[in-house]
Amino acid sequence: MKLIDIVEILGLEAIIAGNDQLEIMTACGADLMSDVLAFTQEKSLLLTGLTNPQVVRTAEMIDIKVIIFVRGKRPLVATVELAREKGIYLYLSARSMFECCGILYQNGLQPEEINGCFSPGEEE
């Protein structure tokens, strides 16, 4: 799915707008950093209710390119600054985590495989 389609379906507000044509293969939704890090696939999208800079750091570690903040929770200034520095795109949704994930799933976006389901670091 292209980023532009995700922005449209969820009606996202851009905080740092990304390349419209960026291809998003999978997504994960998490409010716990270690949960995010347990995902092994090369991924590009994270949905979260956290707004502090650590969420950008965590995304950076596993090459997540896009973060969507759910339930209208705006990221802190320091979070936006770090994302800009790291080239990570930020969006805001007024919808809940459950609703965002449900809509994306319904539209064909694949869930992440969790580490433990197959051996870590294994490439698809």
Binding site: L32, M33, S34, D35, A38, L50, Q54, N115
Partner: peptide, 16 residues
């Protein structure tokens, strides 16, 4: 509240 404390850090360290 900052998103830590899942109790999964050492598990991740071991797995990776």
């Amino acid at each position: 509240e900052m998103g830590f404390g899942a109790g999964l850090g050492l598990v991740n360290i071991k797995n990776y």
